[in-house]
Amino acid sequence: MSNGSTPPASRRRARTFRPVPTALAVLAALGCAGCGAFGGGTASEGGSGPDRPAAAGQHTPKAGPDDGTAHKDDTAGKDGSRERGTAAGGGPLKGKVVVIDPGHNPTNRDHTTEIARQVDVGNARKECDTTGTSTDAGYAEADFTLDVARRARTLLRKEGVRVVFTQDGDKPYGPCVDERAEIGNTAHADAAISIHADGAGAGNRGFHVIRPGAVHAGGADTRKITGPSRDLADHIVGRFVAATGSAPANYINDGKGLDTRTDLGGLNLSRVPKVFLECGNMRDAQDAAHLTDPAWRQKAAAGIAEGLTGFLRR
């Protein structure tokens, strides 16, 4: 994932791996948190392991006919800014608002001074943003996150959900992590999710969901959202397993697929239920094969959308 902080030393040490639960075991442990899926279906603001900047020449995939980029409207934020959202249809979840935060930005690498600027995340100061990581072959995390986010947006719109993006490849860099949180707050989102891929070492594989810990410092106060964010995390884990068949990360929290952190500005500063999803590890060959496969990315988008809609229907 990569969004700007050094992981705790314990995360950088060699780990003793334990057996990873099977998909069925995880679903059973979570009570399946709604196992249906849509048909057809690093060190940073979230990950572990050092950043690997996106390779020069990598570009954001162009919008396809069903990637959710059509039918956009603009909604004014409280501060007068304009944030792009998609007009919702008349589905069963009409009136619900979801903010999707595609991690990083494909052109962050061209604005290293700007993204290195320190911002306040309540209990610390962190970089505005980072470049994100990439696969060994150079497929950039920022390209991956945008593609999956757009696919998820299409699925959510079919349910009537209004979707707001923090960025859609339309900003020169960023936005900064504090701004990403504020977009969700300003939209009064019913749920928010930040999509990433990790940059840990080879052999570390699988996905995990990060939920906010208790933070009450400076401008951060997560006390009202920790409970619903945990519920959201459970829904995402259950549906992501069911949709993708992927196992929870074998290097985070004993293979449970869940982690809690208090060092991520995107979570600390959120006033709406929010989680981060690390869809897999770009540095591991097995995970990279999935992350670079459009068919798998569609499954990932289905897992994300189904997890969000399950949470919204609760």
Rank of each mutant, 00 (worst) to 15 (best):
F144I: 05
R153D: 13
G132E: 02
R157I: 12
H208Q: 05
A214T: 14
T131N: 03
A197G: 06
A187D: 14
V148T: 00
Q118F: 14
D198W: 09
P212T: 06
N185R: 13
R211D: 14
A149F: 09
R125E: 11
K126I: 09
T130S: 10
N185K: 12
V148K: 02
I210V: 10
A124T: 05
V121M: 07
I115E: 02
T145N: 08
S134Y: 06
R205I: 08
V121A: 13
R117G: 11
H104D: 01
I115R: 03
T131D: 04
D178V: 12
A191V: 07
T107V: 01
L155A: 14
A142R: 00
Q167M: 09
A217P: 11
F144L: 13
N105P: 05
Y139G: 05
G213N: 07
R180N: 04
A197E: 00
Q167C: 09
A187L: 14
G169Y: 14
S194A: 06
R205P: 10
I115S: 01
A137R: 01
N105S: 06
D190E: 13
V164Y: 10
R157P: 09
S194L: 12
G206P: 03
D198M: 09
A187M: 15
K126N: 07
F207I: 00
A192M: 13
Y173G: 01
N204E: 14
T166I: 08
Y139D: 05
N204C: 10
G122T: 06
Y173R: 08
G169C: 12
F165P: 03
A187R: 15
D110I: 01
K171Y: 07
G174T: 03
G122A: 09
E127R: 08
I183K: 10
D198A: 07
K158C: 14
Q118R: 15
I195A: 00
A202V: 12
A142L: 01
A187V: 15
I115M: 01
T112V: 05
R180Y: 03
G201K: 15
T166K: 03
T131R: 04
H216G: 11
D143K: 04
G218Y: 00
H104R: 02
